[in-house]
Every structure is written in C-alpha cells, then in structure tokens.
Design a protein around this nucleic acid. Structure first.
Length: 564
RNA sequence: UGGGGUGUGGUGUAAUUGGCAACACGACAGUUUCUGGUUCUGUUAUUAGGGGUUCGAUUCCCUUCACCCCAACCA
C-alpha cells in the first residue's frame, strides 16, 4: 500500500530490511510473512498496524502473509477468540481462508526437542519456578547453573517422555535449553522450553500434557511454514538472539527466517493492553469488547470507522524503531476525510427546540399546508442525487441554534435575525416563549416564501444556515455521543494507573432526538453525516440508534473553548 | 545495577554518497461555501545538550543527557 499521490512514502524500516535481503539474495527473492496473534483476546488498533505491516510488505514484494495462531498457552486461549480474530481481519480487508495454528506443529516441535536433549543442548530441571528465577540472576549479576544442568541426556530424555505421558504434576518439571547462564542477555540464561499444563487446549484438548513456550515455538513455527521475514514489535528485540539460537540447532534445509522488529502503535487517550481492555469489559466500564468507545477493531466497526481509513492511517504513520505515540486526532482525520466523500447527508436534531412559522399558509381544510423540499444527498458527490423532505408550520431545530441573548460572533437564530433553513426558506425570529424556569420552549418565526429552496431572489445574504426537521414528519431516534474513554493523553501518566484517567462521562445517550424520515431507510452499520453535527453510524443491532463516529471540525466550538 | 534499542516543530514521519530541513495532523489567520463542514492560501524548527572534523553537518567523530525494552513455567 505505498502512497499513490504526491505524498512522500512513509518510512518503513522493515521494507529496507527486505530490500537488502533481496539484493543479497538471502531468501532467493522470496518474501513470506505471518501475522501471529495469540487467541486470548480481540484485535485492537495496535494489531491493525502489525497486520498492515505483515500483509502489505508481503503484497509489495509479491509474497504471501499467513495468519498463524500462536496457541501455545492453553490457560488463556479460546476458540471464541479465534473466530473473532478471523472476523475482524476480514473486516479490515484481509480475509483468511485457512488459518494456521502453532498447535498443529506440536508433534514436530516435540521431536526437535528430543533431538536437542540427545545432543546435550536441553535438560529437564526439577526445581520450582521461584528457584529457577532466582538462579537466573539479575541485570549485571551472574546466573547460577541448575544442579540438573548436566543431567545425562538419557535421563533427561526419560523424564521428558514421562512429562509428555502426564506422569507429573503441573510445575514439577520443565525442559530447559542449555545455552549460557552468564549471558548478558537474560533470554539466553537457559530459557524454559516446555512446561507441564493439565489444562484443556482449545484445539488439541487433553492430547498434550506439555506445552512449548513462545520462544521455543515461534521461530520454529516460522521455519516450518517457510517464513522469511518474521516481523514483530520492539519488545522482542532481546529475544532475537534466542530465536536465532533455536533455529541454529535445527537440521534446516532452507535459510532460517529472520526476525525484524518495529515500534508498536500507541495512540493518545487510548490503551491497548489486552489485560486492561479485558478489565474495562469485566468491570462494566464499557458494554463489551465491541463497545464503540473501545479501541478494538470490533468497537471501531460499531463506531463507524471505515476499515479503509484505518489502513490508510497505518500506511501513513510509517514503520520505524522509534517509540512514539500518535495523536488520536490523526486517525480521526483519516476517518473524516473518507467519510466526507462517501457519507450521505441527513438532517437530525439531537436536542429539539420547537419552532413555529407563524405566517405559514393554511390549506382549504384549515390545516397548515405541507411542502416538499429537495435536498442534496452529498455535495461532494453529485451521483448521490437528491431526496425529498417534508416541511410544514411546526419544526424542530437544535437547541443550540437559538439564543435569546446571543454571545459575540453568534451567527445563528436570535430575536430579529434572519437565517436560512437548509434547502428550504429564510426565516426571521419574531419572538420566543419560555417556561417558569426561564428556559426557551418555543421560537416563533416568519418565513419569506420568495426564498423557497434557500436562495433570496433579491440576493440578500444570511449569516448562517441551520438544519431542521418537520415536527409532523420527524422520526424518533436515539443518539450516543462519545468523548474520549481516557481523558489524559497518556492514560496513567500521572499516577501509574490508567484507570485513574478513565472518563466516566465518555458516553452521553440522547433519547429524544428528532430526525428526518429518510433516516429510517438507513441500513445497520451505515454511516451518514448529520449535517453540521458529525458522522453517525447506525447501530448494528438496534434500529434508530446512532453512534457518533466523529464530529465535524467545529470552528464555533473552538471559539467558545478559547473564551471559556 | 549489566545488556540492547531510540532521540528532527505541539504530534507523527521525511531529507541520494555531508549541500536551502520536506509532508501530514493539530493550532492560528484569511479564502471559498446554502453545513461555523468542504476547498484553497499563509503562519507555526537554529534536528536532545556540549565539543570536534569541514567551505558546508540532521547526516561523520567524541562526549553528556533523556526515554523505552530485558531477570514469567505469558505472548
């Protein structure tokens, strides 16, 4: 997905590595990548970057990218997540027919483990986890070799086979690689290769009693699949040495895959830790994994983010080794740019205020007449055509669009002022009514029949144009407005606890909205622009419930913010 | 504390072998407009600090500092 316009192509440190490999013929020009999620949670915006890096690099060089589930830890994994991930991937634009599973390689991995034992490169340790951890030493401190490190291979082999047979309890034995207890790289201090787990695996059930660790399984799964470029995030940098070590012990015929790291995506006002996302769900701060406030792909989908805009964003931010945090506003700008082109315009009144056109004509039956106005569906795309909307004597307008006592620079309706009702008429406010609390309950206006369609024959101008819906023809709707889920740019930056920055008012549900009739034809998931308000996504399940995807740029809001 | 990684505007990313610091978002000012939207224009940086080599340094050298990652039988 390289840039097609005159924009400079975003940096891509991974591309540079592939380019170099191709020049040097490391893999004979082959490029194969993989996206390797663990099925223990749903995909989020951070994964979207990894996904585009993995898939787009492969595409760019005429290679393939496969989806492989790294399902080596039965305790946390579930088929539900497998399905969810495949689903989200397809929505993002990367459909996968035949996912791969690390668990399919368990037998091969096991055989290679026996090989290492026989060659004296792995041994069974029977110390407890705490002891092993202590012996690992610390940064700058030497490691201590396990008393079982030089156990004869035959003995280790016997023990390892009994581990597999299920003769031992969880945690009683582990298989360790015999690497270097004095290495400056902690990953190399005899890492665990296999541990005993009595758990039920989501695919292999109880067939296995022992499970390989990530470091043990990952690189070798890559090798089994023929991966050339194993792309991952920066925190695995220190694992690369181990990744290479394991592969170097194997009787591989093809060149070993190469691990290359890049910086993970971080966004302001957003968390992407799976554990904390799960906590948001479990503690009821959000409705679920697909709550529109969640940074999950399913949440963004419900929120109305076009998948293309996420891909364009990922392409734009580039790939580098610099730890950074992108502004959520940048992502939103891609959403707006895309939606501006494709979203149909509609009129919706979120906080209705009654307007009466006092000089509106009456028909022969004594009732106010009803007229139909032709409205443009999308000024950015003439092919979207027009629609008809009914108008009569009584209307709803936005509460914010009238002020009895207007502040400076207020262009909207106010006593004595003439404004335009979008695509309809010019109206002038004559007076208004209030309740006991002094709140405005109704605005009375007169209209100028000569301005039908929205232009004055005499060429006079108005300062502002407002959206409206006919009171008799409006449809009821509910609208969810969203603020950032975390109020701080970097959640937890002050206190260390992200949840201290949780915005408890991140959702405002408006139950009594009045929208134009055409909106009842909106399909589930469709995103439209409510004119002057923003982009809104029709809920996937509940009819006439709309989620604000993102607001429009709002100059007036900025003016008020500066004052306030 | 040992090792590894990274530092370019408010933010993110660019800048052949050293040669006018570019693009986008945001902000601000203006323009256009039947959306305070859109469009278009302008403004917004002595490249972490210090020193050195050079006619010339974001780029090469030395040095200081800051931030991130690593001591799970998680991935």
């Amino acid at each position: 997905m390289s840039a097609t316009d005159d924009r400079p192509v975003a940096a891509n440190s991974v591309r540079d590595v592939v380019l170099t490999d191709n020049e040097q013929g490391t893999f004979g020009g082959r490029v194969q990548t993989r996206f390797p999620p663990e099925p223990n949670g749903y995909l989020h915006i951070g994964h979207a970057k990894a996904i585009t890096v993995d898939f787009e690099i492969a595409k760019e060089f005429g290679g393939v990218c496969k989806l492989r589930f790294d399902d080596t830890n039965p305790d946390t994994e579930d088929t539900m997540y497998v399905d969810g991930i495949i689903n989200d991937l397809a929505w993002l634009g990367y459909p996968v027919d035949t996912p791969l599973f690390a668990s399919d390689y368990f037998e091969q991995l096991y055989e290679w483990a026996e090989l290492l034992i026989i060659e004296g490169k792995a041994y069974v340790d029977e110390q407890d986890g705490e002891t092993i951890s202590e012996q690992r030493g610390g940064y700058g401190n030497p490691g201590v070799e396990s008393p079982f490190r030089d156990r004869p291979p035959e003995e280790s082999l016997g023990l390892f086979r009994r581990m597999r047979a299920g003769e031992f309890a969880d945690g009683s034995y582990v298989l360790r690689a015999k690497v270097d207890m004095q290495s400056e790289n902690m990953q190399m201090r005899d890492p665990i290769m296999y541990r005993i787990r009595a758990a039920d695996h989501h695919r292999t059930g109880d067939a296995w009693k022992i499970y390989p660790t990530y470091d043990r399984a990952h690189g070798q799964s890559d090798a089994i699949e023929g991966v050339t470029h194993s792309l991952c995030t920066l925190e695995f940098d220190s694992h690369r040495e181990l990744y290479d070590w394991f592969l170097a012990q194997l009787p591989l015929t093809a060149p070993a895959p190469r691990q290359t790291e890049f910086a993970r995506l971080a966004l302001t006002h957003t968390i992407t830790s799976k554990r904390k996302l799960l906590k948001l769900v479990e503690d009821g701060h959000v409705d679920g994994w697909d709550d529109p406030r969640m940074p999950t792909l399913s949440g963004l989908r419900r929120r109305g983010y076009p998948p293309e805009s996420i891909r364009e964003f990922c392409d734009f931010i580039g790939v580098s080794r610099t730890n950074s945090r992108n502004e959520i506003e940048l992502l939103e700008s891609f959403v707006r740019t895309r939606l501006n082109k494709i979203a149909l315009r509609r009129m919706a009144v979120l906080r209705p205020l009654k307007v009466v056109i006092t000089n509106w004509p009456t028909g022969d039956d004594g009732e106010p007449i009803v007229e139909e106005m032709e409205l443009v569906n999308n000024p950015e795309n003439e092919a979207d055509g027009t629609r008809l909307a009914k108008i009569s004597r009584e209307l709803w307008i936005e509460h914010d669009d009238f002020r009895a006592d207007p502040p400076p620079k207020y262009y909207r309706l106010t006593p004595g002022r003439e404004v335009r009702l979008r695509g309809a008429f010019f109206v002038t406010c004559t007076d208004f009514e209030t309740n006991d609390a002094g709140e405005v309950t109704q605005v009375n206006v007169t209209y100028d029949p000569a301005t039908r369609g929205g232009t004055a024959p005499d060429g006079r101008k108005v300062k502002s144009t407002m959206h409206w819906v006919s009171a008799d023809h409006a449809v009821d709707a509910q609208v969810a407005l969203y603020e950032r889920l975390f109020s701080a740019e970097v959640p937890g930056d002050e206190t260390g606890d992200e949840f201290d920055d949780l915005n408890v008012e991140s959702r405002e549900l408006l139950l009594d909205c009045k929208v134009e009739a055409a909106l009842s034809d909106t399909s589930p998931g469709q995103v439209v622009q409510f004119e002057r308000l923003g982009y809104f996504a029709h809920d996937l399940d509940t009819p006439m419930l709309f989620h604000r995807t993102v607001g429009l740029r709002d100059e007036w809001a900025n003016i008020q913010k500066r004052k306030g």
